[in-house]
Structure formats: C-alpha cells, structure tokens
C-alpha cells in the first residue's frame, strides 16, 4: 500500500462504502482500483448492488436490509489482503475521427492557444495513447486519461451548446467521446463515427474502465453522410 492511512474505507449514507486506494491519480492508482473492482466482481460483498470504479477509489452500493458498512468493509479488507485478482485484459480500441470542418469548431482556437498549427494539434492528439479511467458527467461518457501536455488547456470560459454526440473533446489531461448531444466546456477537436453503444444491457458501452483508446484521422468523405 501507499503509506499513510490507505486503504481508507468511508461509510456513505445508509447504503454505500467508499474505498480509497490512493491519494493521487496515476496508473498505479488506476491499477489498484481495477484489481479491487475485478475482485468484487468475482466475489461480491454481502448485499452488493453495484460497484463504481473511479480514479483513486471505488464505491460499493449495498442493500442496507442485507448488509451494513461493517460487513461490507470486512469483506473488502479480506479481498485486499488476499492475492490480487487479475482484471480483464484491456481492450485496445482504434477510434476514427475527423477534425475537418464542421466537426472541429475549436481546432483553430486550440492551435492559437497552444502555439501549434491545427495539424500539429491533431498530430499530438493522435500520437497519444489514452486509458479509460472512469465514467461520469452523463451516461456513456468515458473519461480518457492521456491528452498530451502540448495540447492540454483549461476548460473554455463558456460552454458550447448542443455539441453533437460523437464529438471528440479535450480539457486538461483528459479526452472524451461524447455519447449524447449536450453542452460542454471542453474543446471540440473532431467528430467520430465510432459506435459507443452495444445495445446489450449487460455491457451497454463498448469502452470499459481500463481499456486503451487510440485516435486516428479520417477524411470528411469517410464520415457517415460523406463530406458534410
């Protein structure tokens, strides 16, 4: 473990336990989260309803009529002291995206702010490897860690409305492929025809925590409907 008082098990309301496995988000923290997530999938806690993995911790939601914080905590301590369960091997997804007009309304501004050419911004984006760290913000929004420092910008001062589903957006060290048409304060650098949903309730989205994503550029003519 990482010194101080980790892992730290914190009760949440009458029906959940938050398990802190690290203080700082990094690949080691993500690996510990994935390992405990896999262990809980193989050997669920008493009353376990669902498990929510995040960057440095995970949350276990339980049925308070079946279990309490102490019984769930005891189960987690047992899993953490046992030999680690190997998480499923990460799937590598090759995600096509088009940064041509009208799909990348913020590309010029990102280029201006980073001192790169638009082509340089796209080259940086497509050279990097991204890791799915958690879902959040809205259904199907998978946070991707790995946006290169050369194109890492704070969020925009004001959000853009009605950003279409499938947009490739970045802010700070993170990237996202949007799953819904919604407003966002992140920088819109392109649009992807990548199918995020599976239609399978057991696994509703293609990307899963731990998976690897690489972007590659496609021409507008290869987008659905051709050059828009």
């Amino acid at each position: 473990m990482t010194g101080d008082d980790l892992p730290r098990l914190r009760p949440v309301a009458d029906h959940a336990l938050l398990v802190d496995l690290a203080s700082v988000r990094d690949e080691a923290a993500a690996a510990r989260v994935r390992a405990l997530d896999a262990a809980l999938a193989a050997d669920p806690a008493p009353g376990q309803v669902e498990v929510v993995p995040a960057l440095v911790n995970l949350l276990i939601d339980f049925d308070p009529c079946v279990a309490d914080h102490a019984t769930v905590a005891a189960h987690v301590r047992g899993l953490l002291s046992a030999p680690p369960v190997a998480p499923p091997p990460p799937v590598v997804h090759a995600v096509p995206f088009c940064p041509d007009p009208p799909f990348a309304p913020d590309l010029e501004e990102v280029a201006r702010r980073t001192g790169l050419s638009p082509g340089g911004v796209i080259a940086a984006l497509t050279a990097a490897e991204y890791r799915v760290t958690m879902f959040g913000f809205a259904p199907g929004y998978a946070y991707l860690a790995g946006t290169p420092a050369a194109i890492a910008l704070d969020r925009k001062p004001a959000p853009r409305r009605d950003v279409p589903a499938g947009s490739v957006i970045v802010a700070g060290a993170q990237a996202l492929i949007t799953a819904l048409t919604m407003p966002t304060g992140w920088w819109v650098l392109g649009r992807s025809p990548f199918a995020l949903t599976t239609g399978d309730p057991a696994r509703p989205y293609v990307l899963a925590v731990g998976d690897v994503v690489r972007f590659h550029r496609i021409p507008a003519a290869a987008m659905p409907g051709g050059a828009a």
Partner: peptide, 9 residues
C-alpha cells in the same frame, strides 16, 4: 435502473 452507475448512468 439500478446497476449502471459504472457506465455513468
């Protein structure tokens, strides 16, 4: 729709 928090739902 319980059980989908890990997918952002």
């Amino acid at each position: 729709r319980a059980g989908f928090l890990r997918w952002g739902i």
